[in-house]
Design a protein around this nucleic acid. Structure first.
Length: 726
DNA sequence: TAAGGCAACTTTTTT
DNA sequence: AGTTGCCTTA
């Protein structure tokens, strides 16, 4: 048997992992150490040597993108399509199970998946129905709490309130929400996993079936699994499956949303005879970058331990630029990118990373000013746009009339004379008679319980939906098209103003073509043919929200948060805003363990860089309309000096003219022969070194505000302060 | 019913 | 600063 195409591209530890005998394996894969390669080659290997067929393998990832890539790469190696193999996200696979076993899972066959926006609306509705004040029960927080419990595998009924009034109320909300979902046939993201887990536990015969089948389980990014995901895998694996887990505790950055780094250790303890393999050879970054990354992460305790190394070159030093303000910072970054491009390199190779999305604005402005094309990751995705969600709501109502949230969304969009009064009456009726809004509308019309005007408007709406639900005779594409035409959403959005309305209409057209190219049923198994095209399309829309922008991303500088940069790599990386308070973020300092997570985030950022890394911070940053004075991040001190080249322009005022409204590059000649300018480095006999950040007054009263490295902000009268320019 | 004004937010994000 | 959701007013 020829295994060379699978094994030759691997180094020793990688090969060990790929060829390990069937058992439980934990691969601790450092950044850039070829984790995906190991995963894909492992699967290819198992199939090639006949240890498993595609039918026996389940591979789980966190994102659809990762799942797609994995499938693609394995197919490439094996040169054959992978039918029967389950490769997908936790949620995607759970969904698939629930579709096949909707009865055992106690779901209606037409159940639909709701995204967090839909969930938010449902929770607000629950609060309203329970007569609870949103001030006391902020919907966002309540939503977070419910999801937290679900992620921990805890149902409302399982919470012991112990006479705690607050907790008791929370449980009432949680219960009500669960009830609402059940009655409407709706399943939120966390519910998918929880239901799937309960399906295993309550139906051992179902569980046994899949256990026998999936003798090989592979899980990517294991450090990101939460409690329910872990126990789901644990339940499925039992002691019969071989579980191959890949992760990196140093890249765990999602603790704040319930991910448990501890699951890596837990896996080691709970699964039988876990072999541990470390991948430490890095194929991505220069030695300098790795030295910095290693030193940085070494400040975290409680690690599984790992040291990245490379056979490659030392490379350029990491550059550190201390900007005067965020505008100066952005200008510096853009100038450096221009230099890079002048040197014959491509814009696509450059990424600008930041801790919080709000930072992108200033950088975008600078890029725009210099005519550099860029692309910002994050933000609203395709299926999350209002107009798309509107169309989807119509479609969902076509499949399931009892979907109240969808009905509420579009009953008066576009406006058709069904106002708040009518809706309130509908809601009351629905609640009193425990039925859906749709049925209530039918009944109330029949009973003549509404004004003639409202009755007519409602009837028109009911007829409209009936007209749209032409059933399975027409194609998916035609149905989507019909909904858009009949709903008159186009006209509705046209009123919204030229630019915006036009793009919304384009998006709706895009949805039609998405429906056209949507193929469902390629890889169907027994019990799955029950799902019709429309249901499958709606599930797809909910589970895969789509790309941020479908626009061309060639030759663009990439802007994104540090979180979304995980898993990517770029020859030139900027990390902007490396300041105390911003990175590490001040809100992470309150909570236990969050600082370590921030450090891991920094580690992730640093290890994105292949060739060059530039870190920047600003002395003054305007954030939320407030000027903030800050200090370089502690993380900067944790990077060895010999890796870093400091590029602050000494003794010369930073170029602050751009956008600085008043006092641009002022001087204070009157008080002293020495002049100071904003951003200038100075030294004080008592306070040490600092930066001039603000000025006030003139002549003998002229004062300067200086941000000192050691003692922070001070106002000083120039005439007495004995400041020396550095 | 629709528009306009005002107050209250503002870490990170996938499914 | 800029957005977003809520409430008032026409």
């Amino acid at each position: 048997m020829d295994l060379s195409d699978i094994l030759d591209p691997l180094n020793e530890p990688q090969r060990q992992a790929v060829c390990a005998p069937s058992g439980n394996l934990l691969v601790l894969a450092g950044a850039g150490s070829g984790k995906t390669r190991v995963l894909t080659h492992r699967i290819a290997y198992l199939i090639r040597i006949g240890e498993a067929s595609t039918y026996n393998v389940m591979a789980v990832t966190f994102t659809n993108k990762a799942a797609r890539e994995m499938r693609q790469r394995i197919e490439q190696i094996l040169g054959t399509p992978l039918s029967g193999m389950w490769v997908g996200t936790f949620h995607g696979i759970a969904h698939r199970l629930l579709r096949s076993h909707w009865q055992e899972a106690k779901l209606p066959q037409t159940f639909q998946i709701i995204d967090s926006d839909d969930q938010y609306r449902l929770i607000r509705r629950s609060l309203k129905e329970l007569d609870l004040d949103e001030k006391r029960w902020p919907p966002k927080e309540t939503q977070w709490k419910i999801n937290y419990h679900k992620d921990e595998g805890v149902r409302a009924g399982a919470i012991d309130v112990q006479g705690d009034l607050y907790l008791e109320t929370f449980v009432r909300i949680y219960l009500h929400y669960e009830d609402l979902c059940q009655r409407n046939g709706l399943v939120d993201f966390a519910e998918l996993l929880l239901r799937a887990q309960e399906l295993w536990l309550q139906h051992p015969e179902v569980c046994r079936h899949y256990r026998d089948r999936f003798r090989h389980l592979l899980v990517d990014e294991f450090q990101d699994t939460n409690a329910i995901q872990y126990s789901w895998i644990r339940t499925l694996a039992a002691d019969q499956s071989h579980t191959f887990v890949v992760g990196d505790d140093d890249q765990s950055i999602y603790g704040w949303r319930g991910a448990k780094v501890g699951n890596l250790q837990q896996f080691q303890r709970q699964f039988t005879e876990v072999e541990l393999i470390r991948l430490e050879q890095n194929y991505r970054s220069t030695r300098t970058i790795l030295t910095a990354a290693n030193a940085l992460i070494d400040n975290n305790g409680d690690r599984l331990g790992k040291n990245l190394w490379t056979a490659g070159e030392e490379g350029e030093p990491i550059r550190l630029y201390g900007a005067f303000n965020e505008i100066d910072e952005a200008t510096y970054i853009v100038e450096q990118i221009e230099r890079w491009v002048r040197g014959g390199r491509s814009r696509q190779e450059v990424a600008i990373l930041y801790r919080s999305n709000a930072q992108s604005r200033v950088i975008e402005a600078a890029l725009l000013q210099h005519g550099l094309p860029y692309r910002v990751y994050g933000g609203l995705r395709f299926y999350e746009r209002a107009e798309i969600k509107d169309v989807l709501a119509y479609l969902r109502l076509c499949t399931n009339r009892d979907d109240d949230p969808s009905l509420e969304r579009i009953i008066n969009t576009p406006t058709r004379g069904i106002g708040g009064r009518t809706l309130d009456m509908l809601r009351d009726y629905a609640r009193d008679h425990e039925m859906s809004l749709w049925r209530s509308a039918e009944r109330m019309i029949a009973a003549g319980a509404l004004t003639p005007r409202a009755t007519a408007a409602l009837q028109r709406f009911l007829d409209l939906i009936a007209e749209m639900s032409c059933g399975s005779e027409v194609s998916l594409e035609q149905q989507v098209d019909a909904v858009i035409k009949l709903s008159a959403l186009g006209d509705h959005y046209k009123k919204e103003g030229r630019e915006k309305g036009l793009s919304r209409i384009e998006n709706m057209e895009e949805l039609v073509s998405a429906a056209k190219s949507f193929v469902h049923g390629e890889d169907l198994e027994e019990g799955e043919e029950a799902m019709d095209d429309l249901t499958a399309f709606l599930a797809h829309a909910a589970l895969e929200a789509g790309e941020g922008q479908a626009e061309e991303w060639e030759e663009c500088v990439q802007l994104m948060s540090l979180h979304s940069a995980k898993g990517l790599e770029f020859p030139l990386v900027f990390i902007a805003g490396v300041e105390e308070g911003l990175f590490p973020h001040k809100r992470s300092l309150q909570e236990e363990g969050r600082l370590e997570e921030e450090r891991r985030l920094c580690y992730v950022g640093v290890t994105r860089a292949k060739e060059e890394l530039v870190l920047t911070y600003a002395e003054v940053r305007r954030l939320y309309g407030q000027e903030n004075f800050s200090h370089p991040s502690r993380f900067l001190r944790e990077i060895p000096e010999e890796c870093v080249q400091i590029v602050r322009l000494q003794g010369v005022a930073a170029p602050i003219s751009a956008g600085q409204k008043k006092g641009a590059s002022f001087t204070t000649e009157a008080a002293s022969t020495t002049s100071f300018s904003l951003g200038q480095q100075v030294t004080h006999p008592k306070f040490g070194e600092g930066t001039v950040v603000q000025s006030e007054g003139s002549g003998a009263q002229a004062r300067l505000q200086v941000n000192f490295d050691r003692v922070g902000l001070k106002w000083l009268v120039i005439a007495y302060a004995h400041l020396q320019p550095l």
